[in-house]
Simulated assay, not measured.
Amino acid sequence: MIPKINGLGRSFAGVAAYCLHDAPEPDDRRPRTSERVGWADTRNLATFRPERAARLMAATARAAPDLKRLAGGSPGGRKLAKPVLHYSLSWARDETPGKGEMSRAVDESLEALGLEGHEALIVAHEDTRHPHVHVIANRVDPETGKAAKLGNSKLRLSRWAEGYEREQGRIRVERRVKNNERRRAGQEVLRPIWDRPLHWARFRREGMLPVRARRSRGPADEERVDMEAWRRAEAQAWEKVEDGRWLGFWRLESRARREWADLHKRQEEMRLRLDRESRTLRGRLRIWRIERSLRELVGAVRGREDLVEGWREDLDRYHKGERAALGKAHGESAREIERKVRENYRRGLRDAERWARETKEREGTWGRARSPSITRIVPHPSWPRGPDRGGRAVER
């Protein structure tokens, strides 16, 4: 079981249209077909029709102040900007849960999030090899009008998913169990940077997300090499370069955090200094000396607001250029790491192919009369990766 929170949103109609129809295509951004939808259901709604669920949930979100007043509370407070919660529950490919089992899991997950009394739309998809269900929940309580607090929602779903797997009798995501044990012990949970939800947009924008450097095709001439030996040698070469890539990106991420923190601190100090200097005549003249513009001298003496606003816009453009330059530098560092990884991996592939060819030649020379005292030394096989290849699953 892998729960995934897709995020918060403003439009119930938009996310419902995505879940209740087929995936959009480049030439058809609004498909009318719904072949991938297996079944749909609702929770705490006055309708069983999923097409009307989005409109009813939107009406409840708009009526939040009236609901607070009817419940005896204060209708004030800040308006909830994102009342939509969208998350999904995914089972493994070898599991075949029915509608009843999926509905039970959805109800338990809503209870884990504290949304058991809230409105929700449930849609099961059948377009992938692994069974999964989408849940669209309304954060506004239909009884009190208050918004649900979703602090540590991913952690709560992670703990619930661990309990769900234990109830099923098989732990499929061992890493999640270890991470929860570390959390209970008060220890830090270590994840690779591309698994972290924090700064995901920055990593993607700066090109710091690692790409797949491992190629899937085999050696050039498979008839002249020992394929079993080549696969093991290739796995060992990949393990070696992947460890170096993890270390390189971990160091880059640590350095990027420090540099971004220093940049934001310095830019904030410059903005505060500009605001402080623009309040006094001496400060405005000091800024004018930096600008060296006689045309703005009178405006600086009189303290014209449009002139001060122009200074702020110039400073914002300068800061934007600084941020773009720093992001570009981090992206170049990330691409340099990937380039070294590809070079080392290709070198390891050449060595693996040469070694597998020599192994094949030795087998052809010795044949069955090979001495039993001579053994073939092969690298230790690495663990297969991912649940699709029979390995360990990864927590999302």
Rank of each mutant, 00 (worst) to 15 (best):
M1E: 01
G7H: 09
S11N: 09
A23G: 09
E25Y: 10
V37W: 03
G38R: 14
D41T: 10
N44C: 14
R49H: 09
E51S: 08
A53G: 05
A54E: 06
A63R: 07
L67Y: 02
P75S: 00
K79S: 12
K99C: 08
E101F: 05
M102W: 00
A105G: 00
E108A: 14
I122H: 00
V123I: 04
H134F: 04
V135K: 13
N138H: 11
K149G: 11
K154N: 14
K154D: 13
R172E: 07
R196I: 10
H199Y: 15
H199K: 15
F203P: 09
M208K: 04
L209E: 12
D226Y: 09
R232S: 07
W238I: 11
E239Y: 08
K240E: 15
R245W: 04
R257S: 13
R258N: 08
A261E: 14
E268T: 13
E269W: 08
R271Y: 01
R273P: 09
R276V: 08
R276M: 10
S278M: 06
T280W: 05
E291D: 10
R292P: 04
R312M: 00
L326S: 01
K328D: 11
S333C: 02
R335V: 03
E336Q: 04
R339F: 04
K340I: 10
N344D: 15
Y345I: 08
L349V: 06
R354K: 14
G367F: 11
S373V: 12
P387F: 01
E395Q: 08
R396E: 08
